[in-house]
Each structure stands twice: as structure tokens, then as C-alpha cells.
Design a protein around this nucleic acid. Structure first.
Length: 445
RNA sequence: UCCUCAGUAGCUCAAUGGCAGAGCAUCCGGCUGUUAACCGGAGGGUUGUAGGUUCGAGUCCUACCUGAGGAGCCA
């Protein structure tokens, strides 16, 4: 019989390489089933779960009793022989021959997350423990894959990573949606977007992107909102609207296809219908704002949209849901009215009342995942727009400089990572897509 | 800020205005192939808070607190 020191340490994800061999796994007791003189402890180690088999007459009394009395989530180092078994969900079982209990969870204060349903409040209150469950672990691995794929996508296309600052100076626009911080007796804010800063980087390095957290103090309480979320924002000098629309669809497709290729088992763990993801490939449907408005009005006439939408407004989430429900892949809506969009967006030369901008709406009601535009390249035009929006020109002096010293057409977009993860995973709420969600009502743990 | 819903055992939920209960978890016992194992038993309660109505309130009324979903908001 092998001893603990001789059996090589491995992970549950890799036990398939050790079929028939003794291995050591370092992890936790996930769950346990008993049948008299036979114990089935289920171990997890962060890479997966594996069921152990422990017949009383095959192990020492010490090992048998230790496992019989083991409590959920106690930490253990376990040694045993890997054996392929068709009855095992993961394909392999572990014939345990030794176990070392590192820390036993006490009987009178057991692990609070049971193997059954819980309410949202309870789970969020125990988020630090909830992440140990297979479903949450799978979601977090998919998040990591999407971030990895995003960085790969830009790195391989000659983009330079130029992260934007998180602390920003005096508010340029309304402060109601910004988190204020004291900066050595000066007023500062947590960033709401890195966009203005990466525009400066694009003028220096050509093709750039930033990836980092952004903060919004909005009183939003919906399945699509967090107060702290992560955005990836590419910005390209000399790019026009059509260039970033093509980039956006290639990018979105790359994230989905990478997840399908590399994290399929995790998608299955969370029960995602992957057939809804396989066709997420370019070209994505492209419609103008005008066409989207027409679509909403026809939907209203058919009784599928509650309120009649009038040209000129921005879409609410029920509107976005209806538009996206008409397609089997993300839809790109472009050229919104200038009035409802940001001051820095370039007007369409053919129709100046429209902005050269695009929103990418995810299918299945997940709403806007990308917002982008061509930026105003001309100094006087931008200065005029700043005044039209009653913004303090002084605060934008550096931003205007980008148009004084070699101003060029340039474009970019921002993608909210959590909404993409929620969509790819098919989740009810974005709070499960980030390790520790920050919402209107929660900052613990 | 507004609308709707919900707060009962550690968790998920029952309980017509009339003795506060079940399942899971925990503990004890049984079971050599269990898959949210199963079977038997035990412990576990200031019914969110404060008032009010009533012979009697988990249940009805008022206010507040907390949470959930949605709206608005989200350059």
C-alpha cells in the first residue's frame, strides 16, 4: 500500500492522467454519503470534485473513523488510487487509503451553505463561502476565460494595454452618479469610464485598450447593474465608425467562441444551453436607430411592446429586450440621435442630428454589452459641444489639446465584462459574475 | 425617488384570528454502490422592530427597518 509521501500531488482536474495510480489530493470535503461500512466522501480542490470510496475493511480504523466523522468543508489531504468508473459523474473515483485532516469544521458551527436552495440575501451575505460551490466556481472560471480571451484578442492585434486612472479630478459632469473621495483635502472621484484618457493614449500609441474597474453611484436596482464593474475599452487612432463596428463583432464572437472551446465543461455545470452560443459569429445584424424605432413601433402595433416609442428618445431596457429578441445573435444599433448621446461623439456628416455611434445588444434580454462611437476630431467642434452641454471648458483643457496637436478621426468602444459573462452563462443576475459584487444595497463581505 | 412583493428554527418554507410545524443541516442509531442517498430517533423559536384592534394576533391595522424584482436613472 502506498504511503502519503510516495503518492504524487495532483489536482482533481488532472486525475485522468493517473488512472490506476496512487495520488495525493489537497482540498476540502464537499459532501459525504454513507452506507454502513461504506463511505463515499466527495472531495473538491478548486479544479473539480471527485468521489472517494472507503470500504471499512480496506482502510485502517483511524482513517475510517476520521472520514466517518468528517464535516462538510473540513480541509483534508487525501491519498488514494485513481480508478476510472462509469458510475462517477467526472469519470473517475478515488479508492482512499489515507487521509490527513488539516482543520475539521466543528459540529456545533457547521458550514452554512447547504446542498439545496438558498435565498439571494443569504447567499450574498455568505459570498466568501458561496464561491466554493461548483456552480459559482464554474462561473468564475468562465469570467477568467472571457477576460483572458479579451486581452489576447487585443494583444494579438497590435494593441497596447494603457490602463486609465481610477482616481479622477473634479467632476466634469453631474456628480450624482460618481463616488466622491477625499484626495488630500481636494475633491476627487472614482472613474466612471476610462475613455477620455485612452483617447490620449491612442494619439500616442495608435491602437490601445484599457481594462479595469469603473464605478457608478447610480440608484439602479436591476439584474444588469453593479456599482463597481469592469470594462474593456479599445481606442484606435484614424478608425471610423465602420471600423469599430467590425472590431466589436469580431471581438464579441471571439469571447464567446473561446469560452465554448475552453470552458465547455463549466458551461455544462451551470446548465447553459450552448446551442444559443454556437452561432455567435460575424456578421452580426446591423440596424440604424431609425430602423430600430420602426421595429419598436411595429411591435407596439402587434401588442408586443407596451408603450409606443417615439423617435428621439433613448431606449429603455424593455425596448432593448424587444429589439434583441428579433435576432439570434447580438444586434448592432447605430446612429442614435445626437441629443441622447455623449458630447464627444462625432455627428454624421450626412445627417448631423445623428451621432456616429453604435450599441451592441446581447440576445436573450441581456441588454447593452457594448457602447461605442467615433469621437469628434476637430477642436472647434468639440469646444462647441462642451459649451452646449454646459460643461466646464477648463476641466477639458487637456482633452481639447488632443485636437490642437494633430487631431484625427478616432473611435473606440467600451464593453461591460459582467454583462457579457451573465449572457454567456445565461444567468439571472450579474451579481454572480464577479467575485464580490458591489450593489446599491451591499458592500459586505 | 416611485411601484409591486416578501420577512416564522442555521437554511428553504407551511400554519382558516384559536396548542408554532415539516424538509434540509447538526447530533445519536441502522444500512457494502450511494448520486440533493435512504430508514429510525433527538435537540433547535423574543414569528424583522415598535405600537394598535381583539377574550385571543405569525395571521388584521399603522409606522418604521431589511431584502427582492421592476421603473426612472445608467455621458
Amino acid at each position: 500500500m502506498e504511503t502519503t509521501t510516495q503518492a504524487p500531488i495532483t489536482t482533481i482536474a488532472e486525475v485522468g492522467r493517473h488512472d490506476g495510480e496512487a495520488v495525493t489530493i489537497r482540498g476540502w470535503l464537499y459532501n459525504k454519503r454513507e452506507s454502513g461500512k461504506l463511505i463515499f466522501p466527495i472531495f473538491r480542490d478548486g479544479t473539480g470534485v471527485i468521489q472517494g470510496v472507503v470500504p471499512k475493511n480496506q482502510v485502517t480504523p483511524e482513517v475510517f473513523d476520521a472520514l466517518k466523522n468528517l464535516t462538510d468543508e473540513s480541509s483534508v489531504i487525501v491519498t488514494g488510487k485513481v480508478r476510472a468508473d462509469k458510475r462517477a459523474p467526472g469519470g473517475y473515483e478515488l479508492d482512499v487509503n489515507d487521509v490527513k485532516v488539516i482543520q475539521r469544521v466543528p459540529d456545533d458551527d457547521p458550514f452554512p451553505i447547504a446542498h439545496k436552495e438558498h435565498g439571494v440575501d443569504f447567499l450574498m451575505e455568505h459570498r466568501h463561502l458561496w464561491v466554493r460551490t461548483p456552480r459559482q466556481a464554474a462561473i468564475l472560471r468562465i469570467r477568467a476565460e472571457i477576460i483572458r480571451a479579451a486581452r489576447n484578442f487585443f494583444d494579438e492585434r497590435g494593441f497596447t494595454l494603457t490602463d486609465s486612472p481610477i482616481l479622477t479630478p473634479a467632476a466634469c459632469e453631474g456628480t450624482s452618479t460618481l463616488f466622491e473621495v477625499d484626495y488630500f483635502d481636494e475633491q476627487a472621484f472614482l472613474t466612471q469610464s476610462g475613455q477620455l484618457y485612452i483617447e490620449a493614449m491612442a494619439m500616442a500609441l495608435g491602437k490601445v485598450y484599457s481594462f479595469g474597474p469603473t464605478f457608478r453611484a447610480e440608484k439602479s436596482k436591476t439584474r444588469r447593474h453593479l456599482t463597481e464593474f469592469w470594462m474593456v475599452e479599445p481606442e484606435i487612432a484614424y478608425a471610423e465608425l465602420d471600423d469599430i463596428m467590425q472590431l466589436a463583432e469580431e471581438f464579441t464572437s471571439h469571447l464567446v467562441q473561446s469560452t465554448l472551446a475552453n470552458r465547455r465543461a463549466d458551461l455544462e455545470t451551470i446548465g447553459r444551453d450552448v446551442t444559443k452560443l454556437t452561432n455567435i459569429k460575424p456578421p452580426f445584424p446591423r440596424i440604424t436607430y431609425d430602423e430600430a424605432v420602426k421595429m419598436l413601433q411595429e411591435g407596439h402595433a402587434k401588442g408586443q411592446v407596451e408603450a409606443r416609442f417615439e423617435w428621439g428618445g433613448d431606449f429603455g431596457s424593455p425596448d432593448e429586450t424587444y429589439i434583441s429578441s428579433q435576432f439570434d445573435r447580438p444586434v448592432m444599433v447605430h446612429r442614435y440621435p445626437t441629443k441622447v448621446k455623449a458630447f464627444y461623439m462625432e455627428p454624421d456628416p450626412l445627417r448631423p442630428e445623428l451621432a456616429l455611434c453604435v450599441d451592441v445588444l446581447a440576445p436573450e434580454g441581456y441588454g447593452e454589452i457594448i457602447g461605442g462611437s467615433q469621437r469628434i476630431g476637430n477642436y472647434e467642434a468639440l469646444r462647441k459641444r462642451i459649451h452646449e452641454h454646459d460643461l466646464p471648458e477648463e476641466a477639458f483643457k487637456w482633452y481639447l489639446d488632443l485636437r490642437r496637436f494633430g487631431g484625427v478621426p478616432h473611435s473606440g468602444f467600451g464593453m461591460g465584462i459582467e454583462r457579457v459573462v451573465a449572457w454567456v452563462c445565461g444567468l439571472e443576475h450579474v451579481r454572480e459574475t464577479i467575485p464580490f459584487a458591489r450593489t446599491l444595497t451591499r458592500i459586505y463581505p
